[in-house]
Nucleic acid binder design. Structure first.
Lengths: 388, 388
DNA sequence: AACGTATCCGCAAACGTTACCGATACTTTT
DNA sequence: AAAAGTATCGGTAACGTTTGCGGATACGTT
């Protein structure tokens, strides 16, 4: 017979349905609903979880309030040096580690900048990360890096995760698939600072950090022309990327300036990947009327072409001039050296980081798509120097 | 004249000290203490801060309690499909983004794995990151990367930050300065999963992911010996790094096996940096009795030596055999190609990630410094193939 | 009718911090 | 000695979620 846990009467108990698979009872006398606690100790939960010492533990041990502890730990005024010392000692003794999560929640800021990059294959993005990392750490910010892996879906998921984690600002370089930008406009709506770099787009009002791709491409092609090449092909990237468009424009502008007709069969708007590069390269080199020079959108593609040329017995630079873009480390070592455009990668990282910090500090309005354009440098090596 | 905000009497007000630099008053009549609120509207705080829609907003709009909303959003049972739909619709309409911080706080887990790497200069760590990233994302974890920049102080600061941010586990590769390990033992104490990789140490009880450095070094040196080199130098790394020690041991073991005396003036225990490599290289090549081969601790050093040899007119591989370690991209392209040891970088990343996930899931006890040893591969190129 | 059951939903206590607003117990002026 | 000022400290709402426990209703069964 069951007794009522409240009024202690027996015989007034009736069943009253189930709650989460447990029989539920009600006492007719006092109208108290209850279930029978399971025989195991009722409320252990995960006692196994190690208790992290909190500010409250310190407060209790020292015999002050937690607000006092908080102030002591943060070196605020309004506190007796002795109590402060006592608190600090106790904190050390109890091995206290502040809980950043709680801190972030109450301050609703995280001191963390997010960064989304499309890939890690080339030196480019790791270098940008190095630059940004340096500036951010100096200013007491953390950097959380995510990788979209050239996938639009992943990029969107990443931005969502960044949003959920309440980063204070986002640095992003788009994937080559990205054609829609709602996921970025969200940041603008919420007033979360956003800076695009390298792979930027026009459809979002945010600062952009880029290099002078147009000029760089122009100079690269001009360099080829001045070295006697006539029929110059361009192996370009996907045109939804501004960088690809600019490099393409620079190529066309240079050709036009020097009165070289652009043969459209020599202009490829392709995707960025080693495999694709091989396909495009094969196409170009197998062409009936093969170009005598190729300006590639990046060094990987350029090197792929040089290797392929070697296989086919086409001599670089005499029969084929090659210019790349980015100055990968291997470009200096391949024989002949690859002429390429060096980008100030570290500086790109630093600039984006500085800019987003400024936006955070100044609570600056979203600048209307202002651009900061960094300078590149043409590195001339053997691959474009034809022996007359 | 000031009136009492409580009893509304006038003339009973006296000053009563300062509170945070604001004049404080007390009403003698009702004994009520108060300060004069600043003339600006009293309690706006940062009304400027945009309000993020919370679960409570949804609850109010739909007309249910916030617990119901929470359950609806997480697809729990015990909820009417119609209510759930209404809640989901409202969430979409209000553009609700969950606050991961609050979630993390209450769950005291973050679904984030931290990773600390010493540098980004070589391909090695970016590749490891790629591997780990892939595995972790598949399992719904985030990856936060920090860079210690080969500085012990930064490494310690990084671990503290990781701890404060309550990451669920840490993957770390030590700096070349790291000689003390309290900052890692903290993780063990707190029961936070920790996996070391590549740059590991013996002084902490945690799983380690490494490659067979000893064997690899042995095989590299053996390869040199079998190609007719006699007086082989070793340009090694700092000996507090296990990798350096193992490679050094492998070198000595191979020399011993083939009865080559190890001349200590040909064995360098140096630091890892391009500049240092140049100094060591110069030392070795300027030696009165120059070695006829060099096994370097990494490719950067090996390449530095090859370039220096070229400058000095020493022919590689005929007068000097060179073997590196890591197979950097440029090693394949330099002429002659650099013989080197390829490490399964991506696989290292994947293995560490899988391991830490397993530790989290199984709440596995800290394994007593178990090691997982991945296989390397000797890539033979021109730099070690002497023309007889 | 009287009782039992299933379904849905709400209450309120955490999670660990911060910061506003007070409140004491002194010390210094007037 | 009263009034004013100072130096320290405490109480307690937030911050946005999750979740155990239990209340309430509607319906089904003797």
């Amino acid at each position: 017979m069951i007794g009522c846990p409240k009024c202690a009467q027996v015989g007034t108990i009736m069943k009253a349905g189930y709650v989460r698979n447990k029989q539920r009872y009600v006492c007719k006398a006092c109208n108290y609903f209850f279930t029978i606690a399971s025989t195991e100790e009722p409320h252990k939960r995960q006692k196994s979880r190690r208790h992290q010492t909190t500010i409250i533990d310190i407060a209790k041990s020292v015999g002050v309030s937690n607000s006092t502890v908080s102030r002591a730990l943060h070196g605020h005024a309004d506190i007796n040096p002795e109590t402060r010392q006592a608190i600090l000692d106790m904190a050390a003794q109890l091995d206290y580690q502040p809980n950043q999560l709680a801190y972030n929640l109450v301050k609703s800021r995280t001191n963390t900048i997010g960064m989304i990059v499309p890939e890690f294959h080339n030196r480019f993005f790791p270098n940008v990360i190095m630059g940004a990392h340096q500036v951010l750490t100096e200013q007491g910010y953390n950097l959380t890096i995510m990788q979209s892996n050239e996938s639009f879906a992943v990029e969107v998921a990443n931005t969502k995760a960044m949003l959920a984690n309440r980063i204070d600002g986002l640095l992003i370089s788009l994937t080559q698939e990205t054609n829609s930008f709602e996921h970025l406009q969200v940041f603008e709506k919420r007033g979360i600072p956003l800076v695009l770099f390298n792979r930027v787009c026009d459809d979002v009002h945010a600062p952009k950090v880029v290099v002078n791709d147009f000029e760089a491409a122009f100079m690269a092609v001009e360099h080829l022309i001045k070295n006697g090449y006539e029929r110059i092909a361009h192996l370009g990237g996907p045109l939804n990327l501004l960088v690809s468009r600019e490099r393409m424009k620079g190529y066309r502008a240079a050709m036009e300036k020097y009165g070289k007709p652009v043969e459209e069969e020599l202009v490829i708007q392709g995707m960025l990947s080693q495999q694709k590069a091989r396909i495009y390269g094969k196409y170009l080199l197998d062409l009936e009327n093969r170009p005598d020079a190729i300006f590639a959108v990046n060094d990987s593609a350029a090197i792929e072409i040089m290797l392929m040329a070697k296989e086919k017995g086409i001599r670089v630079p005499d029969e084929l001039g090659v210019v790349g873009f980015s100055d990968n480390p291997e470009s200096a070592y391949i024989g002949p050296g690859l002429t390429t455009v060096r980008q100030p990668t570290i500086e790109i990282g630093k600039t984006t980081a500085r800019w987003i910090l400024q936006m955070i500090d100044d609570e600056e309005e979203f600048s209307d798509g202002e651009e900061r354009i960094l300078k590149t440098e043409l590195i001339v090596r053997g691959s474009s120097l034809r022996h007359r």
